[in-house]
Write a protein that binds this DNA or RNA. Structure first.
Lengths: 185, 185
DNA sequence: GAAGAATGTCTTAGCGCTGAGATACATTGG
DNA sequence: CCAATGTATCTCAGCGCTAAGACATTCTTC
């Protein structure tokens, strides 16, 4: 006697909610079960939903960013500088690590933000290779306006999730990220 | 006396794992608490981790796709055709809805796959506006090779997550997706 | 059955990102 | 103190995507 991930995951929602409608991922899994019954596709229950959730959330957040003349990339840079606290200065490398993008992406993000007068880039005194990126008053004002709206959008997205499931979701993602080595090195 | 989402979410991992190391999102939340203690940034516990998890997973899956001469977009199309079952034919619109991308993106994906001889595109008999996309024998063979490798990668990614948390993660994502209207319309 | 609306696909300009590599500066070891 | 190595940033070609719209075909309504 042995357990597959499948047996644990097959329609867990059906247990909690007997009348629950099958979602997109349920249909995908059912299709695979018909086409390749020899394969255990239960991991798709996790990753299929992760991908769809990310896309739905991303689209919703982008709508709010656009209302403030921003996109996710620009908001990310301004918010990272803001939350770093006084004097609201970071190096491109620091921004790069926080954003999980390449150095080239950060260079271009900063080009755009600098052209709009939202950040400044100055040479570092301590290290001639490095730059210091700082929020301008305009950048400061913009992120102060956009942040509460962004949080309101996030609260709205979580409206349909009860507190227990929200906590469980955070706990699982935290555990998984730790297991995958995120946040340590 | 009232509860904020914050009080429910603040370091839930610390309860389950007293010695748990703070992750990237914990640091972000702590920074906001110092800079803007008036704001409840607890929703970021969810969305910050969703974003990072998506990126880490995406990178890992792409590595496996690349080993088979594929990327996520191409794999997605081939897998969607494969799991649709005999005769392994779908319209671009069907592929578009499954992939959550625009029609232009599907056109370009199909251009690339057609050029590599992995799919064919023919006029539909029933509807002159529509096309029928079908797997070629080469496309069939490629997805048959890539799919088990892909599943193995997914199983590996879930290694660090115990069964209870895996089930809770799926349940929460399913609930949230349903609340956000995914999979119904 | 013709006009207008709707649908399915393709086209194209523009965007942000990656990967590879260039450049400038800093650090280390002999 | 110099050479070799490492680090921080920028450059740029190429990629896949979106948004807007073109075009052909089908459906709807009168």
């Amino acid at each position: 006697m042995w357990l597959t991930v499948t047996s644990l995951l097959r329609n867990p929602g059906a247990i909690a909610y007997p009348g629950a409608v099958a979602d997109h991922v349920d249909r995908v899994v059912a299709q695979w079960a018909a086409e390749r019954p020899d394969l255990d596709v239960s991991p798709m229950e996790v990753f299929g939903r992760l991908k769809r959730l990310y896309r739905v959330v991303d689209a919703a957040l982008n709508r709010t960013f656009a209302e403030h003349g921003l996109d996710a990339a620009s908001f990310d840079v301004l918010a990272t500088l803001k939350r770093s606290g006084p004097p609201y200065r970071l190096t491109p490398t620091g921004l790069m690590q926080s954003a999980m993008v390449t150095s080239g992406a950060i260079t271009q993000r900063l080009d755009r933000l600098e052209a709009r007068g939202l950040v400044t880039r100055t040479r570092s005194d301590q290290d001639g290779r490095s730059r210091e990126v700082a929020l301008t008053p305009e950048g400061h004002a913009l992120i102060e306006r956009a942040l509460p709206a962004h949080l309101a959008t996030e609260v709205g997205l979580l409206e349909g999730l009860d507190d227990a499931r929200t906590a469980a979701l955070v706990d699982a993602m935290r555990t998984l990220l730790a297991a995958l080595g995120d946040g340590e090195e």
